[in-house]
Design a protein around this nucleic acid. Sequence first.
DNA 1: ATAAATAGTGTCATTATGACAATTAACGCT
DNA 2: AGCGTTAATTGTCATAATGACACTATTTAT
Lengths: 242, 242
Amino acid sequence: MTEAEFLKSYNPKVFDAPLCTVDMAIFAVEEGELKVLLIKRAEHPSKGRWALPGGFCDLSNDATIDATAHRKLFEKTGINSPYLEQVESIGNAVRDPRGWSITLLYFALIDFETIGAHPQSEHTQWASINEALKCELAFDHKVLLRKAINRLRKKTRYTALPISLMPRTFTLTELQNMFELILGSPLQKKSFRRRIEASGLLEETGDMRATSRRPAALFKRSKNFEEDHIFPGLLDVKLEQV
Amino acid sequence: MTEAEFLKSYNPKVFDAPLCTVDMAIFAVEEGELKVLLIKRAEHPSKGRWALPGGFCDLSNDATIDATAHRKLFEKTGINSPYLEQVESIGNAVRDPRGWSITLLYFALIDFETIGAHPQSEHTQWASINEALKCELAFDHKVLLRKAINRLRKKTRYTALPISLMPRTFTLTELQNMFELILGSPLQKKSFRRRIEASGLLEETGDMRATSRRPAALFKRSKNFEEDHIFPGLLDVKLEQV
DNA sequence: ATAAATAGTGTCATTATGACAATTAACGCT
DNA sequence: AGCGTTAATTGTCATAATGACACTATTTAT
């Protein structure tokens, strides 16, 4: 039998296949808090529970699983090009009452200022991490959320990832606040600035942020910006794993 | 409708689900070369091509995707408890001619000396990384192999992962050779030993390796061994990404 | 005994971060 | 204009970890 003949006679439905979904932890910062987008499930199972946005791969419209993730993100936030990273895939017989299921977990980092909109309604909320982890989330989404947060925290110790949560321009103090917010502990101002400057990831815009005190220089991503730039040393904080 | 009623009437087969497989890059070292296990495909598609070992999740026997990975590893190597890590999931419409498919990519690190057997036959070979990447591997397995190798190399710069490729006891020089083999560049003996010693991951067995020259102290994993121990600094090598 | 080879150590330089003080620039107030 | 307050920015030294490289130690072969 040739491969062409084999494929002609192949029926993918004869084997049991797991349910396959993409779930996303979409992070943003608002009012000095790290928040995650939650959707209230409109249908069974887990109807009425808060959940991470997600859904099935649409085989006829999504070319890749990343496309599915981008589509989900766009449907919920209107955002096209966020920082998007695959965290891990979790699959087992018990996580979804409909049957053996696998989810591809992503996280996205977005920023309200460049986007403008942050939908909030009866069925959509931006919950702070602590709030979200206190909820009874749908399925195993609490586990998923923990994995996403832990990944974000871990990478914040040795990469420049949190820059992707910032608006187009920002001050170094604002950026440091973002790092501290994610890590949950304060950083040394001087060390932080040295790191950032040595990385060459940012450049001054020339403008200043007008505040009630001494104005701060505004920075933006430079030509050679890469969000997961790896610093030569780890930031010395003890992470609380959630 | 209650959730129970919903589930009763739910048919997972009405939606098109992607094919879902687990593929593994199983690494081991032999004769000073980093090798990966390849299987010659017995069936269509890609019949006759070399491929990474893998296969479908067996929903009735595997409780989790990690169980599938462990099962595949055991089937091919007889090994039960290797270092096993999920690398990434790759899914798209074109990687498998049978249709939209997702693979969950893992890599495993094993060591021949503790295991004993390294199957090699007409249908099974341990190929050096360079050989394997020169082959026309089945499906997108060349891409998968690259991803697995790059992950291994990257983590070797800041973790103790390669210890999992070593036999139960080994000398520090042998361990350094392993690191150098993976990284593709030489390391400073002193720096390397300092790092390892400071980590507390290893302890001396008290025995010595008898060689034709000065004997070397044998080490083994200590109580507090953890394969992905993170060192405070990056090894300073420029990685060639494959 | 001596050379060769590999194991293991000593030492200083370099790089990066931690700690913390000092300086600078703006604002509001008197 | 001068002063206090606040936040931005820089200076300086200590500490930690790696890089470079030389030196010592131990074994075998000759």
